[in-house]
Amino acid sequence: MISLIAALAVDRVIGMENAMPWNLPADLAWFKRNTLNKPVIMGRHTWESIGRPLPGRKNIILSSQPGTDDRVTWVKSVDEAIAACGDVPEIMVIGGGRVYEQFLPKAQKLYLTHIDAEVEGDTHFPDYEPDDWESVFSEFHDADAQNSHSYCFEILERR
């Protein structure tokens, strides 16, 4: 099963200049909980913004210009990325925008964090048809001392 995991502000903004323009430790914990011990696929820009392999996960970098870091697996196509994951129950696609666009048609599940923030962004989550998805989990949280904005975790499964 292919799943996408993303944090989205208003207007589906997911990033600005290779960074997330908010401070939500709870979302980072949600991300870790849902990706640990699963292969993660990301684009080169996302890889560069993280700066290191995510521990406890097979890191697969999709790029037309593969790098030389041998701590991760470099691939040039969506099919190659899927094959590099091996026989696993769930593959997690973690961004960025172009990689989400490439995998959305193949995805069966979306793990979304909806952030109540209007922020400037240069990267967006692809538009998706809500009628194609069923919400199977939703959990709202107010902003607090650690988390700069209110947010809602949601899991959607393709109908």
Score class of each variant (00 low, 15 high):
55 P>C: 08
153 F>A: 04
30 W>I: 05
111 Y>W: 04
146 Q>H: 08
8 L>G: 02
32 K>Q: 03
31 F>L: 04
18 N>T: 08
121 G>Q: 00
91 I>M: 14
147 N>C: 04
32 K>T: 03
137 F>S: 14
156 L>Q: 13
109 K>P: 01
64 S>N: 11
70 D>Y: 08
26 A>C: 01
33 R>V: 07
115 I>A: 11
34 N>F: 04
122 D>G: 01
12 R>C: 12
139 E>W: 05
143 A>T: 05
123 T>G: 01
56 G>R: 05
51 G>N: 08
45 H>V: 01
42 M>G: 03
87 D>N: 09
80 E>A: 04
134 E>A: 08
129 E>K: 13
79 D>Q: 05
150 S>L: 03
117 A>K: 03
13 V>N: 02
49 S>V: 03
138 S>K: 12
47 W>L: 15
26 A>Q: 03
21 P>E: 00
23 N>C: 10
43 G>A: 01
39 P>N: 13
121 G>L: 00
59 N>H: 09
140 F>R: 13
145 A>V: 07
152 C>E: 10
134 E>R: 11
69 D>E: 08
67 G>N: 08
44 R>C: 14
51 G>E: 14
20 M>Q: 02
102 Q>R: 11
55 P>K: 06
152 C>Q: 13
66 P>M: 07
118 E>H: 15
79 D>P: 07
157 E>G: 11
86 G>T: 13
62 L>M: 12
95 G>P: 01
107 A>G: 05
159 R>C: 13
45 H>N: 09
82 I>W: 11
121 G>A: 01
28 L>E: 00
52 R>Y: 09
156 L>W: 13
12 R>A: 03
51 G>K: 10
26 A>R: 02
126 P>R: 11
40 V>H: 09
122 D>T: 02
83 A>S: 08
70 D>K: 08
100 Y>T: 00
79 D>H: 09
70 D>I: 07
123 T>C: 04
52 R>T: 11
159 R>H: 12
32 K>A: 03
138 S>W: 06
141 H>Q: 05
28 L>A: 01
117 A>N: 04
143 A>P: 04
145 A>L: 07
106 K>S: 09
159 R>M: 13
32 K>W: 01
72 V>A: 13
70 D>R: 09
55 P>T: 10
143 A>R: 08
139 E>D: 06
